[in-house]
Write a protein that binds this DNA or RNA. Sequence first.
DNA 1: ATAGGGTTAG
Length: 539
Amino acid sequence: MVSSASTASLLLPLPSCSSSEESDDGKPLPPLTAQEASSPPPSQLKRRRGRLERDYNVAMKALALSGDVDEVLAVFAELRRSLADAGDGGAAPNVLCYNTLVNALAEAGRTEEALRALDEMLASGVAPNASSHNILIKMHARRSEFDLAWELIHKSEMEPDAATYSTLIAGLCRVGKVAEAWGVLDWMLEKNCLPMVHTYTPIVQAYCREGRIEEAKLLMVEMERLGCLPNVVTYNVLIRALCDSGRFDEVEQILVDSRTKDWNPSTVTYNIYMNGLCKKGKTKEALEQLDVMLGEGMDPTAYTLSILLNCLCHDSRLLDAIYLLERSTELKWHAGVVAYNTVMSRLCEMGKWMSILKLLTDMIKKGIEPNTRTFNILIHSLCVVGKFSLAKSLIQSEGFAADVVTYNTLLHWSYHCGKLTGANRLISAMEEKNIALDEVTYTIIIDGLCREGKFDAATGYFLKSLKIGLSMDVLTVLLNRLACADRIWEIHRIFDEKDFIPDHLVFNLTIRTLCRASYCHYRDFYKLNLILDKMLERK
DNA sequence: ATAGGGTTAG
């Protein structure tokens, strides 16, 4: 279990609020007066409680917004302690605080902990409200448990509102089930529940993700017709899609039009635009947008800085990037862990190990805590400069939760250094620590084993990988290796496996791979025939 | 006062 929830809630201090920009207004609570401390009247006690909960909730939300879930946990624990000390028998925090906590955990993908927090809330006798209900539905939707979500909506006494349906629609759209999303929309209309921007925006986003930009635009026109005006979020979704396909003229047009429409671009809008320009190599234009944004009186956020640094790094202006990073505090630009990670990973690609170390010490000095990604970059760069053993020993470091990326990095370099037993030990360690192997892991293992001539073992890992679903990337790597090494019996073994369900894409890939490996030559043609037969058996 | 849109690692 990676969860540092319990330890974090015991050990971490109150939020200093220095890391998050929004929470500076969280004034310290006034100290108890002597009278309050001895035996405050119940009404005053209640007021104090309310104030305490509100202030803590504000802080928790700010932290959740800046993605600092562990801090949210810490603040919640602190709140619980304060309430216990406040004198009325250790009453639990109210629903709103619990909702903030559960939602922050759910957003961070820490579903188990979110569910535990929810259980704890119920056990403390705190009654859930409509929001708690919606958050739970969102969790089910995120895990693609739509049946459960639907069941919850029906059997609950809570009357589903537009937010409930919108949550479900968003979940469906996330996994590309747009038709089902429309189905829910129809259902809510039947129930006389009026859709809102939150209902349509996920559908617009789903269209955008599939590259159906024109349909997305049409839907936005339809929204206007229905009096459900697209807002800044809807436009941001569209702008991102336009950026991804390089349609910057249209982005400009939308920004111009915004002045006569009912929405205003936000910092996020410019972040999206700048990042889009940067990804298409238009550094100069991206920096121009920064000026536009500052001219509009908008403050850059931690995101803005990371995007700009990324931009500079891609333009190989590393010295500028490092300079900006070092000066960020005096410029009042918020450098966060992502900003440092961005620059460090670029330095890593260039093998500048000493510079990475310097940035690492800088960030720690500034009180910015390195996260798992920071460690992964560190480990990767150690591998690049040939310090593999040192890199490997870093997994044991205190306070660092190695994840699948960490292990993938180490695995890749184990094979690279020819350390097969070491690689096997790493795989066992993953299993012990319940870190699930992903597509990348299997690709690395299969490629590594094949390079050592261990085709049988590699094929075995491929068959194992089917448990997490067929990945064309993994299959491509294996087929290439097997074909080049003329290991047709292993290819047979793949097609014999009953868990392997080949479709036309698989057939296509197999035949193309074999032909490229010169199986079309007349002397080898019989082998191709054998495999074709095998494939047709499975049809 | 629950929700949505933006950045980094293999």
